[in-house]
């Protein structure tokens, strides 16, 4: 059914911290690995060892230069995957019902055996979250690792999306946005979590935490190296020792 559920019981999604992300692409690789070896058809690489390799990825990391009106530019690494939107335009356009949003947890999925590969869902997504597989010719997208998060054969700490489990910087967080006490909701509140392209009215579930303001060093006196040491009369153990040794 390609009509969207009015409300989902849980609202699973990611919080991505643009302040912490170091742009290492580990999430990209772990995502590609997990989703090639597990649920659904593998993520194709066409001409993998040739001149023009083109691969299917469910998660990609961009890097942006941000220049304020005053001050220096900064580099922001920007991982982007499906945002599991509440008003997912990719779902309603699907003619076959292959695309759907689950009412129990809000995950947007593709039933690959129903997908005719028309590509309209990828056209409808403003974020570029869906990619047509180069070999299987069906639409691939982030599943929020639906085959990990409910998989009781895995250790509890592994029952989270592969990208979150892998991130060495702790820049990715997974949780239920319907639960007011969840870690993801706290992060969004504390850090001002934001929607991407709010004007597209997709109501994304995934939120992005903006980079924190850069530290500033304050005023530095250029004569500082020439000034006298601050601790003229040290009163620590070293100071006491210094005094005792002077007496000898």
């Amino acid at each position: 059914m390609t009509t969207l559920p009015e409300k989902t019981e849980r609202k699973l999604g990611l919080v991505i911290d643009l302040d912490t992300c170091v742009g290492c692409h580990a999430c990209v690789i772990s995502c590609k690995g997990w989703n090639t070896e597990n649920y659904g058809s593998p993520l194709a690489d066409v001409d993998a060892y040739g001149e023009n390799p083109v691969g299917t990825f469910l998660n990609r990391v961009h890097s942006y230069e941000v220049t304020p009106d005053e001050g220096t530019s900064q580099l922001v690494h920007f991982p982007k995957s499906c945002l599991h939107c509440e008003d997912a335009p990719c779902v309603t356009v699907c003619p076959t019902g292959a695309s759907y949003k689950r009412s129990e947890d809000g995950i947007v999925l593709v039933n690959e055996s129903d997908c005719i590969g028309c590509g309209l869902c990828a056209w409808a997504c403003p974020y570029g979250a869906r990619e047509m597989d180069g070999i299987e010719k069906v639409m691939k997208k982030c599943t929020l690792c639906v085959d990990r998060i409910y998989n009781e054969n895995l250790e509890p700490e592994d029952q989270i999306p592969s990208c979150v489990r892998t991130c060495p910087a702790g820049a990715r967080h997974f949780g239920d946005f319907n639960d007011p006490d969840s870690q993801v909701n706290k992060l969004v509140l504390e850090r001002g979590g934001m929607d991407l392209m709010p004007e597209q009215q997709t109501k994304p579930v995934n939120k992005y935490l903006p980079p924190r303001p850069k530290d500033t060093l304050g005023e530095i006196d250029i004569l500082a190296p020439l000034l006298k040491p601050v601790a003229e009369k040290p009163d620590t153990f070293i100071g006491w020792l210094n005094k005792q040794l002077d007496k000898i």
């Binding site: 083109v54 691969g55 990825f57 961009h62 230069e65 929607d195 991407l196």
Partner: peptide, 25 residues
């Protein structure tokens, strides 16, 4: 700026794409 949410900091420029080749998108 709206796509990255970084417009509140300043002007945004794509610095590096996610990959060296092309892709479906």
């Amino acid at each position: 700026e709206s796509g990255t949410g970084l417009g509140t900091i300043g002007r945004v420029r794509a610095f590096e794409p996610p990959h060296t080749g092309t892709n479906y998108l």
